[in-house]
Write a protein that binds this DNA or RNA. Structure first.
Lengths: 254, 254
DNA sequence: TCTCCGCTCTGACGCAGGGTCAGAGTCAAG
DNA sequence: CTTGACTCTGACCCTGCGTCAGAGCGGAGA
């Protein structure tokens, strides 16, 4: 049986020598033997065991649990262990998802409002990250529409989210600046077209989603505190509704 | 200005007194003052700051970074910070997703194969969790089909995944046991119906996805090593194809 | 006034999973 | 024999607190 010394063995397994020391110390992986001068000597069987360890670590188990599992050669327990880890990780992912959505919304809100103020930022993040993110808006959408929104969710990469958020901010600013213009004029028409394009980015052209959006934005004054940063000013909403009507485009929320 | 002592202040913010001590020590949140006898005295301004701290911690920043950010009153840096955190968290979520998928597949594989052996388990998890999970199967599906698969991905909760995996295992066993029967017989028809139901669970009835599945399972011998545990035995595939044909159901992969 | 309970302080150790020295010994090639 | 690449052990460091331990305060009841 060929023996490997620490560095070679570590490189084979893709870990550091320090890791081997650590695993030895905690009794997770003791080398097959020692040389006369105290050098650790590993074999291929050790490599197999180390690979098992690393895989179990990969799926999020702690070293202690791994040790216990391997010591009992826990092949029969493996299914249960996997089930538990799956639940644990699923919960983690939900947290992560919420946090990511919160950051996305915060970025959009920030990119619009020149100097960000901490207060609205904290309330926004807290509201979104702590609790149910999407549930409050479910009241506005039919079940099928909500399902179609969910199925489009994976399309919203952080980059796209950011780009669209920035475009919304720019559009809001431009509309603000055009409030004194004629809602049926040429400038207003251009704004309405941009508006409609951005709305379509979210609806994907789905009329059910569009309808829900309309309901939702009509109810903007009643949104939870954390979302008020997203509510467009009534003047803006009025203007764009008129502009959309004049341009013969069905109105979209915003 | 009203003053709070440690416990009351901590309760207001939803943290422990120890946390306050810690934040004081690392210079993240020093109380507005001290009583004559050394008691920490916090004010409402401290509460605001603590809320900012907690929100920044929520999105994954370290205490050191938070301190630096708040010390410079980094309102202007906030957008950059958020962008960075978003990327960091997005990467984390990808890891998590891969790991969850890997666990799901491992559970299914395990629930079929009586005594699990470590070797196929480790190769499976490594293959899936370390690298591109879905890319190898993209070759079998058209772009639209792949897009529809992605859009159905959110439907696959861990629970559903597990249930369907278990049903597949049971079905495989039953088919194995029925290999000597007539593929056109009544028993075979029942199996074909079950098979088709499970396939539909994945395809959602989409013929494009179905077509890709057929291509994919026809190529099973060429799947990467980590997926071989998923390949049905040729006899099983043969039997079920005949049974599906006899039952006048279009064949589904598996 | 004494006592008692509940609060507060500081200091110190522990946790997971190693990273990163420091100081000393070993191995093999030139 | 030297030199450079490894190896060993022991020890401290990191994060973000939890968890004592020992000692001091503050206010209410007896």
């Amino acid at each position: 049986m060929k023996h490997y010394r620490a560095l070679e063995f570590a490189r084979r397994a893709g870990v550091t020598v320090r890791t081997l020391h650590h695993y030895d110390r905690v009794g997770l992986l003791r080398p097959a033997g020692r040389s006369g001068t105290g050098y650790r000597l590993y074999t291929d069987r050790d490599l197999l065991r180390l690979e098992q360890i690393l895989v179990l670590k990969l799926i999020g188990l702690g070293l202690k649990d791994i040790r216990a599992l391997l010591e009992r050669d826990g092949r029969t327990e493996l299914p249960d262990v996997l089930a538990r880890q799956q639940r644990v990780l699923a919960i983690k992912r939900e947290h992560l998802d919420r946090t990511l959505r919160a950051i996305g919304m915060a970025r959009s809100a920030l990119s619009g409002a020149g100097q960000p103020d901490w207060e609205s930022f904290t309330t926004l993040i807290k509201e979104i990250a702590m609790q149910n993110t999407t549930s409050w808006q479910e009241q506005y959408f039919s079940e099928e529409a909500q399902a179609r929104i969910d199925s489009r969710a994976h399309l919203w990469s952080p980059e796209l989210q950011q780009r669209v958020g920035a475009e919304w901010s720019a559009l809001y600013r431009d509309v603000e600046a055009a409030l004194s213009e004629d809602p049926a004029g040429e400038k207003a028409r251009a704004l309405a077209v941009r508006w409609n394009a951005l709305v379509s980015e979210f609806t994907g052209g789905d009329p059910g989603i569009q309808e829900g959006l309309n309901r939702m934005y009509a109810d903007a004054p009643n949104w939870p505190a954390g979302r008020q940063a997203w509510a467009p000013r009534p003047e803006v909403q009025d203007f764009i509704r008129k502009a959309l009507a004049a341009a013969a485009i069905r109105p979209g929320g915003g």
